[in-house]
Design a protein around this nucleic acid. Sequence first.
DNA 1: CGAAAACGGTTCAAATAATGAACCATCGGT
DNA 2: ACCGATGGTTCATTATTTGAACCGTTTTCG
Lengths: 261, 261
Amino acid sequence: MGTITKALNLLNHFSPNHPEIGLTEFRKLSGQDKATVHRHLIELAANGFLEQNPVTRGYRLGPAILRLAAVRERLFPARTIVAPLVEALASELGELVHVSLREGNHMSPLFHHDALIHGTRVYFDEAELLPLHATASGLAMLAFGPENLLPDLLKAPLPAATEHTITDHTQLRSTVEKVREAGIAFVDQGFEAHVSSFAAPLFGDQPEAIGTIAVALPTVRVTDDMRLRIKAALPRTANEVTEKLGGTVPVDLRRIWTNAA
Amino acid sequence: MGTITKALNLLNHFSPNHPEIGLTEFRKLSGQDKATVHRHLIELAANGFLEQNPVTRGYRLGPAILRLAAVRERLFPARTIVAPLVEALASELGELVHVSLREGNHMSPLFHHDALIHGTRVYFDEAELLPLHATASGLAMLAFGPENLLPDLLKAPLPAATEHTITDHTQLRSTVEKVREAGIAFVDQGFEAHVSSFAAPLFGDQPEAIGTIAVALPTVRVTDDMRLRIKAALPRTANEVTEKLGGTVPVDLRRIWTNAA
DNA sequence: CGAAAACGGTTCAAATAATGAACCATCGGT
DNA sequence: ACCGATGGTTCATTATTTGAACCGTTTTCG
């Protein structure tokens, strides 16, 4: 692992619940030496990726990130485009919907919305990277994303997030194959206990998926009726999002989606 | 300059006009060896800070930035809070208004809005870092920001952006002193020819400025009347922004602002 | 109240990772 | 088929990163 990766990984420890992190805590979280962590923090701060709270001496995300995000969003206004469609689907289904983009061997949340009509709700952390093999989003990406994604992922052992997580290589391969045939991914408590999720791929101008749209809901609410509603709504919305992003759904997948409907 | 800084600086070459950059161009822009640049690009991409266009092989900003920006914005929703106030001031004055945060020895644009009511308009690039000594925003930060900011800046020679840029150390010191007394900064064509700007500081819970709000307009439109309108409106809005951000304007500056009004 | 643990930060020899000149591959234009 | 330009790779050399030990403050707790 290079120095750059080590430094950037420090940034991944931030989350909405944990917006400020001190030196010692960083040392624990990253497992690196204190001096190393400190120099990395200093350098990240010097570039505006972090800033230090002068009172607590803790570090938090800095303004450079917002500046770059504005550039990225202007180039490719995914968040802006996706937001209303996600909100509409969340309201229609009454459940949490999120859109995520692939970031290496993980899915990176871009936007999410929870209809909040039920007493129990799914916890979703926009800062947390989702593993490919344990989530519906991930399976959809493995099935319709870059060809070498699955082989690359299988080079390392698959960590189990829950006791339902698929960790067997052969089983993962066949599950991904099923997702390819179905045009939609389903995972039952693979990432968090009592949570199930469904996902469909999103495309840019290339015929390989760049992201996914997913519904996550408590397993107890996955009724036959809900299953049907999701299977109808998710491909429809995925197609809509793809088109609004200026992308194209590959013809064979489009055929699967229309036949299923 | 450490490896991390070199890598992060690559990201600063992106702008709305220049959203995708190839290897050779990066080499020219950064002045580093091709192999070095390439390894840095690969590592940034592996962490989701960049992604590669598979067709052109060019690099563009990646999804990790959006993910982190969402965390930062949730922690400190500056953009969201600031936007309506900037828009209101821009409409009131009929000119371009921007809010910027300090990022090391530069100001980093957070949000800007142009009223667009005039035929000529100021060009403003949200991705471009503003030098402290050449812009009104920068002077306001030097005057009301961290104490050691001005001494630190004076350790290096001051580059001239235009022929009006202050490059003399003594002159900069006295100019900053005047800004402290006036409570507001004014720069005439210090950064771009034919553009003048006014700026006032913004505060968090500490009594040192964290950002600035500024008006930038063609020098020809800086009439006595406009000057008065800006001098009244800018401190008022700066105070409002600071309060909405949960910060406090130091009492001595508040006195200057109210006396001037 | 005082000792001690915890935390942020720094130092410098040792070790590892970054560097860059040269090289290779591929593409588009002529 | 050639040439130039671009993206990408290699490997010995070099320079930067590394981390155990150390220091000064602040906070905790008996």
